[in-house]
Simulated assay, not measured.
Amino acid sequence: MKPDYKLVAKAKYIHATADLASELWHEVYKRYYPAKQLDTLVEELQSADAIEADIDNDVNYFLVVLGGKTIGYFAWKMENTALHLMHLYLKPEYRGKALGRDIVLSCERLARGEGKGRVWCTVHAKALPVQQFFKALRYRNLKPAEQENGTVPRDEVVFEHTLG
């Protein structure tokens, strides 16, 4: 069964995405950040207000729905020469089932169709399984990510795939 991708635009979907983001970020990042820092990160980057601000800045959020159940979300933004895959999170029981790969490949097709030459993302420097996931898709680790604004320092690396 293939998932559906539901564009997040209406307030109820923005709030649903923020709730899901909080759940998934707390599960994924609890090993990397103390609880208070993690709460701050979620509030700064994935609260309903933050997601709405992203959408206002041309970020496209999608809920991933499979069999009527919301199982994750992803977000991307078109830039000058690239598609920036900003978020890709799936509930634990849906990881390792090629769903994330299909989302990344869909983003690559979209980028090609828009005339972009690459897709890039950032990954936590200690999230080795996620890094392996991107390496298996022919992404290469370029460099440490520049620190974005925010109160919590984030240890991330940039992964990029040049589209052929």
Rank of each mutant, 00 (worst) to 15 (best):
P3Q: 03
P3M: 04
D4I: 13
V8Y: 00
V8G: 00
A11C: 14
A11K: 15
A11P: 11
Y13P: 02
I14H: 00
A16E: 12
T17F: 02
A18H: 01
D19W: 07
L20C: 03
L20P: 00
L20Y: 05
S22I: 06
S22R: 13
E23H: 10
L24C: 03
L24N: 01
L24G: 00
E27D: 12
V28T: 11
V28Q: 06
R31F: 07
Y32S: 02
Y32L: 05
P34H: 08
P34W: 02
A35G: 07
K36L: 13
K36T: 11
Q37S: 12
L38K: 02
T40V: 12
T40H: 05
L41Y: 05
V42C: 03
V42N: 00
E43T: 11
E43K: 10
E44V: 05
E44D: 10
Q46R: 08
A48C: 08
I51W: 00
A53N: 12
D54N: 07
D58I: 07
D58V: 07
N60M: 11
L66N: 09
L66C: 12
L66H: 13
G68C: 13
K69W: 15
I71M: 09
A75F: 01
W76R: 08
W76K: 09
K77Y: 07
K77T: 05
N80V: 14
N80D: 14
T81D: 15
L83K: 01
H84W: 09
L85F: 02
M86I: 11
M86G: 06
M86A: 14
H87L: 09
H87I: 04
Y89N: 03
L90V: 04
K91A: 09
P92I: 09
E93C: 12
R95D: 06
G96V: 07
L99N: 08
L99W: 08
L99C: 11
L99E: 04
G100M: 05
R101K: 15
R101T: 15
D102Q: 14
D102I: 07
I103K: 00
I103P: 00
V104N: 01
S106I: 08
S106Y: 11
S106H: 13
C107Q: 06
E108M: 08
L110W: 09
L110H: 09
L110C: 08
R112Q: 14
G113S: 11
G115H: 02
G115D: 06
K116A: 05
G117A: 11
W120E: 01
W120K: 00
C121V: 06
T122W: 02
T122R: 03
K126N: 03
K126V: 01
A127C: 10
L128Q: 13
P129V: 05
V130P: 01
F133R: 03
F133M: 04
F134C: 02
F134R: 00
L137K: 05
R138Y: 14
R138K: 15
Y139S: 00
R140G: 09
R140D: 10
R140E: 13
L142C: 13
K143A: 12
P144H: 12
Q147V: 04
E148W: 08
N149F: 12
N149A: 15
T151R: 14
T151N: 13
R154K: 13
V157S: 03
V157C: 04
V158N: 03
V158F: 04
V158M: 03
F159D: 01
E160A: 10
E160S: 10
L163P: 04
